[in-house]
Design a binder for these strands. Structure first.
Length: 885
RNA sequence: GGACGGUUAGCUCAGUUGGUAGAGCGCUGCCCUUACAAGGCAGAUGUCACAAGUUCAAGUCUUGUACCGUCCACCA
């Protein structure tokens, strides 16, 4: 009986209980030898020291929903959890903590600093894991991975060495993006460009041995000491005569050539460009093409180097002021104007990024990209498809990937240089001696690898590669990658490349890119804006199932999600509704499970109807899952449970529960329908469904998470019976509406007279007499063509059946006329639209015949209703004027 | 400069092959009907951004315009 379930659903104890159950029982640890078609997903690993944010919550919910669904469908499901060491981000966090003690990492030294990071990870690394657990994620905790653990580090070294030997990793001096705060190189895509208001200075460069000068425009005067050329467009008539001559760089007096290159935009600024090969990406290319001198004047800390002459030691900001002042003093400052231009910032600390020339390691993306490009959509489907174009564009314009980082936290590059002979050795384990000269004086590369390097291996490294494990054999490639579109390039594209190169197979069959979660105004959620919705708080406040349901309901493909707390609160009501429908069901069941009946041949119309609707829903939800239409999954369940099961079915079977002849069948259908709706909702709402399930008779001690998806019962699809039910519902709604609009209290029992359209309708009404009486709250029903209908009655027409509610003179009769007019107005309007269509020759000739037929039928029904209402209204008006009853 | 997305009820958003627009919250009225007041019943509100086109028929397809947003590239 129901006393097992409390009146309102309280998620707290329930969630805790099931989390513990699943973890202790290792419910989600699959056996690779077990039968079942494999289904696998690797988690997008959150930063190890991070905290759960709403984006994770969305991502985890969607993945878990998929895993639980396909587990129900009999697949052998593996979801690999894990975390990322997040090189720069984590190092920054620890450095900040250190700064509070007044220390820098250099004060500790490399080893001690790394110890300190591990210590930090011990302390905070479990936070995010607990939060993943709190989301109800059905991950396999036995296969938890971390990008820096021994197995994955071995995979990283093996990949690095192999790529190096294949010539796909190389080392060289190039211009890269440098963050002087993080003190490291950054990859191109780790630089965030933002528009900023700056200045464009116009500065006069004098031509050597001439009175002439030319004016260059620059936004960065501090780089002037590094200028090694001035460049103009070869066809620019203003400057043609100067090409090949020499000019003097202001402030430092260096003599540099005036060169010509089509790269220069004649329209911009003065059409003359100063070239600083060491401090600008484009100038670097010009320097290489024109064989210019390379002079570095800014160092790795953003300070001026001795090469800058008198500005040595100044910060670049100070230097800018000094140089502008000096040039102005010389009278060579022609002008300054404001200029909006975009400036690169470090994606981790937001410091302005400086182009910087240094020795770095690179992956030859241009060689790896073509195969990964071709793989989509041939071997891997990308959803939403719109991203495919972006993916191609990126692959087509890809540049080599700078993978070395001048930080300490990460996978140290497995390369050693012999201090004696200079030999470079790249190998998985540290060499004991130089392979060339035998010296033991070896020095390992100081740099570590970009975090995304290890992330790129995640789909196979987490399954034990390079060993040939059962996991790889069973679950690689993974079924789908679910992640945000913001890391399509950082991560997805690189996994595609590495997967193909090392496993000779794409890492996933599908890639589903979900939206970003924004606030109600559409802004990105960020701590600084103060608009974050904290999923942990939401779970505490509304329960995990409410949060999950909200996120799922919002996850329409290809659109951003604007989340507000109201929505979560709203869907909490839904969780509660489910809970209470279960309470009702339990109240009407016995301790033992109800005796099975053949569902294909149940007698009750309501039961035929709900079983029919359930079949339709099962098929729809199944399809929605296969197509990643998460919002349809959620809404399908919502509408069915609330709008059909609760609003109608539970009410419809209430009379049956008092009728010994009908009770057993209705009990069994009620029991079955609830169980199936629980199974259908379980992937989205794991906790509440699990709790209800084990409270059902016959299911004590069971775990819904391991129960199969409800089987389809084609025999229960009965559209004709469903239509009959809809007629009964129409009659009930009609009476309720009359009562509500005429101000008759809902509880006041009235008599109902019906003039059915035909004998079948008449029989249907008789068969469902009790239900109509109960739900419409009637004292009596009289149905039949000859039933006397008092003139003073409210009336309506449902599918040709006249609904007559005698008013007995105790309500405001005039209201009924207004109500009828309004009703007839609506029908009239509909009728006009139909007639307009049908009188259109083109419509009749060209529209699909079945549609024309259905329009004809509809027109006939509307006309019939209208005629009947007009007659009833005329009679009613007679009554108003005192005519007899 | 290139690409993409959005514009639907007061607010936040759904709307799967074109066929008379839906949900949540909010709002109005009536109800504590023994699962649920976190509820029930009934109701109001939309020239589906604008313009043109295709079609018998357009929120849905095509083109253009406006506004908002995102990504990429460039930016001396």
């Amino acid at each position: 009986m129901s006393d097992e379930l409390p009146k309102g659903y309280d998620p707290h104890g329930v969630e805790e209980k099931w989390r513990t159950h699943w973890r202790d029982k290792k419910t989600f640890t699959p056996d690779p030898d077990a039968p079942g078609e494999p289904y696998s997903i690797v988690i997008p690993p959150p930063n190890v020291t991070g905290a759960l944010h709403i984006g994770h919550a969305l991502n985890l919910t969607l993945i878990d929903t998929l895993c639980r669904h396909y587990r129900q469908k009999g697949r052998n499901v593996l979801w690999v959890p894990g975390t990322d060491h997040a090189g720069i981000a984590t190092q920054n966090v620890v450095e900040r903590a250190l700064a509070k003690e007044g220390k820098r990492r250099q004060d500790l030294g490399r080893e001690k600093f790394i110890d300190r990071v591990w210590q930090w990870r011990e302390e905070y690394g479990s936070r995010i894991l607990n939060q993943i657990d709190a989301m109800g994620c059905s991950v396999d905790w036995e296969r938890l991975r971390f990008t820096m653990d021994e197995g994955l580090s071995r995979a990283v070294r093996k990949v690095f060495v192999q790529l190096y030997k294949e010539g796909l990793i190389y080392r060289g001096k190039y211009i890269i993006n440098w963050c002087s705060r993080c003190h490291t190189a950054l990859a191109d895509d780790e630089v965030e460009h933002e528009d900023e208001q700056g200045h464009l200075w116009q500065i006069k460069y004098h031509v050597k041995d001439s009175d002439e000068s030319l004016v260059v425009a620059t936004t960065r005067p501090e780089t002037i000491p590094g200028d090694t050329a001035v460049c103009v467009h070869p066809d620019d008539e203003r400057y043609q005569h100067l090409i090949g001559k020499t000019c003097i760089v202001p402030v430092c007096g260096r003599e540099v050539p005036i060169i010509a290159d089509r790269y220069v935009d004649r329209e911009f600024g003065t059409g003359a460009l100063k070239v600083t090969p060491c401090h600008d990406h484009n100038d670097w290319a010009l320097g290489k093409n024109h064989d210019l001198e390379f002079i570095q004047v800014i160092d790795e800390d953003g300070r001026m180097k001795p090469e800058s002459g008198k500005y040595d030691g100044l910060s670049k900001e100070e230097c800018r002021k000094a140089i502008v002042a000096d040039i102005e003093a010389m009278g060579d400052l022609v002008g300054v104007e404001k200029l909006a231009h975009s400036v690169g910032h470090c994606y981790r600390c937001h410091t302005v990024v400086e182009p910087h020339v240094s020795d770095q390691w690179f992956v030859a993306m241009t060689k790896l990209a073509p195969r990964a490009r071709e793989a989509m959509p041939k071997y891997t489907r990308l959803l939403p498809e719109a991203w495919l174009k972006t993916y191609y564009h990126w692959m087509d314009t890809i540049r080599d990937w700078c993978i070395s980082r001048q930080i300490w936290w990460g996978h140290r590059i497995p390369a050693w240089t012999c201090q004696a002979c200079g030999e470079l050795m790249v190998q998985e384990e540290a060499p004991k001696a130089c392979c060339k000269c035998g010296s033991t004086d070896l020095h390992q590369e100081e740099d570590v690898l970009d975090t995304w390097f290890s992330s790129a291996l995640w789909p196979f490294s987490t399954m034990g590669w390079p060993d040939r494990t059962k996991e790889l054999a069973k679950w690689y490639p993974t079924s789908v990658l679910v992640t945000g579109f913001d890391i399509l390039f950082f991560w997805v594209a690189r996994m595609m490349m590495m997967g193909q190169h090392f496993m000779d197979e794409v890492p996933f069959r599908d890639v589903y890119l979900h939206a970003l979660v924004r606030d109600a105004q559409g802004r990105k959620m960020s701590k600084s804006t103060g608009n974050v919705i904290d999923p942990v708080k939401m779970i505490e406040q509304y329960g995990c199932d409410s949060l999950r349901f909200t996120l799922t309901a919002f996850a329409a493909m290809g659109r951003d999600i604007r989340l507000s707390e109201d929505r979560i609160e709203g869907y909490r009501h839904f969780v509660n509704k489910l809970w209470n429908s279960a309470r009702f069901t339990l109240m009407n069941l016995d301790k033992e499970p109800p005796a099975p009946v053949a569902l294909e041949s149940v007698q009750g119309l309501a039961s035929q109807w709900i079983l029919h609707r359930l079949e339709v829903l099962k098929a729809e939800m199944d399809k929605a899952f296969d197509e990643y239409r998460f919002n349809d999954v959620a809404q399908g369940g919502y509408k069915f449970l609330w709008g059909e099961f609760c609003d109608w079915y539970l009410e419809l079977v209430k009379p049956d529960m008092q009728d010994p002849a009908r009770k057993p069948e209705s009990q069994y259908v009620l029991y079955t329908a609830l169980k199936e709706i629980l199974l259908l909702l379980h992937p989205v709402m794991p906790f509440v469904t699990a709790e209800i399930w084990q409270a059902l008779p016959g299911h004590a001690g069971e775990d819904i998470a391991v129960m199969p998806y409800p089987e389809s019962r084609p025999g229960c699809l009965r559209p004709d019976e469903a239509a009959k039910m809809e007629f009964i519902q129409g009659v009930i709604v009609s009476v309720r509406t009359i009562k509500a609009e005429l101000g008759i209290a809902p509880g006041r029992k009235v008599a109902l007279k019906l003039h059915p359209a035909d004998a079948a309708q008449q029989a249907l009404i008789e068969a469902n007499r009790t239900v109509i009486m109960t739900l419409a709250r009637l004292e009596d029903i009289e149905a039949g063509a000859g039933v006397h209908a008092p003139k003073a009655s409210a009336s309506d027409v449902v599918q040709g059946c006249q609904i007559i509610v005698p008013l007995k003179g105790n309500v405001d009769l005039a209201t009924e006329v207004a109500r009828l007019d309004k009703e007839m107005g609506k029908i009239q309007k509909g009728l006009e639209m139909v007639e307009k269509k049908l009188s259109n020759e083109n419509f009749v000739a060209r529209a699909k015949p079945e549609f024309v037929a259905s329009e004809r039928a509809r027109g006939a029904e509307l006309a019939d209703s209208l005629a009947k209402l007009e007659k009833l209204k005329a009679r009613f008006e007679e009554a108003l004027q005192g005519g007899e009853d």
